[in-house]
Deep mutational scan, measured.
Amino acid sequence: NQASVVANQLIPINTALTLVMMRSEVVTPVGIPAEDIPRLVSMQVSRAVPLGTTLMPDMVKGYA
């Protein structure tokens, strides 16, 4: 089972991601792979992401 990136806190719209905002977790459906966490740092979210939400490619500007 592949771990995905999950929000560790509420991430407001247009916030630049930092390591403390993200954790890896095995979830369904699968989201952005956990190994991409270093690449996500400083990228902005395109919408508010609630705590515990799996990050999907369309939620991060410039990821897809």
Score class of each variant (00 low, 15 high):
residue 2 Q to F: 10
residue 2 Q to A: 15
residue 2 Q to C: 10
residue 3 A to P: 06
residue 3 A to S: 15
residue 4 S to T: 05
residue 5 V to R: 01
residue 5 V to W: 02
residue 6 V to D: 00
residue 6 V to G: 01
residue 7 A to W: 02
residue 8 N to F: 06
residue 8 N to D: 13
residue 8 N to E: 08
residue 9 Q to P: 00
residue 10 L to M: 11
residue 10 L to S: 12
residue 10 L to P: 13
residue 11 I to P: 00
residue 11 I to R: 01
residue 12 P to F: 07
residue 12 P to T: 11
residue 13 I to F: 10
residue 13 I to R: 10
residue 13 I to T: 09
residue 14 N to Q: 11
residue 14 N to I: 03
residue 14 N to G: 11
residue 14 N to Y: 09
residue 15 T to F: 09
residue 16 A to H: 10
residue 16 A to K: 07
residue 16 A to G: 05
residue 16 A to W: 09
residue 17 L to Q: 00
residue 17 L to V: 03
residue 17 L to C: 02
residue 18 T to Y: 03
residue 19 L to D: 04
residue 20 V to A: 09
residue 22 M to G: 00
residue 24 S to F: 11
residue 25 E to K: 06
residue 25 E to A: 15
residue 26 V to D: 15
residue 27 V to Y: 03
residue 27 V to N: 03
residue 29 P to W: 04
residue 30 V to D: 15
residue 31 G to D: 01
residue 32 I to P: 00
residue 33 P to E: 05
residue 33 P to V: 12
residue 34 A to K: 05
residue 35 E to G: 08
residue 36 D to Q: 12
residue 37 I to D: 00
residue 38 P to S: 11
residue 38 P to M: 14
residue 40 L to S: 00
residue 41 V to G: 02
residue 41 V to Y: 05
residue 41 V to P: 01
residue 42 S to Y: 13
residue 42 S to G: 12
residue 43 M to S: 08
residue 43 M to P: 00
residue 43 M to A: 06
residue 44 Q to K: 09
residue 44 Q to W: 11
residue 45 V to P: 02
residue 45 V to Q: 00
residue 47 R to D: 06
residue 47 R to Y: 12
residue 48 A to F: 09
residue 50 P to C: 07
residue 50 P to G: 09
residue 52 G to M: 05
residue 52 G to V: 02
residue 52 G to I: 02
residue 53 T to Y: 14
residue 53 T to W: 14
residue 53 T to N: 12
residue 55 L to Q: 01
residue 55 L to W: 01
residue 55 L to P: 01
residue 55 L to R: 01
residue 56 M to A: 07
residue 56 M to S: 08
residue 57 P to Y: 09
residue 57 P to T: 10
residue 57 P to V: 05
residue 58 D to W: 12
residue 59 M to R: 02
residue 62 G to Y: 10
residue 62 G to Q: 12
residue 62 G to N: 10
residue 63 Y to L: 06
residue 64 A to V: 14
residue 64 A to R: 08
residue 64 A to E: 09
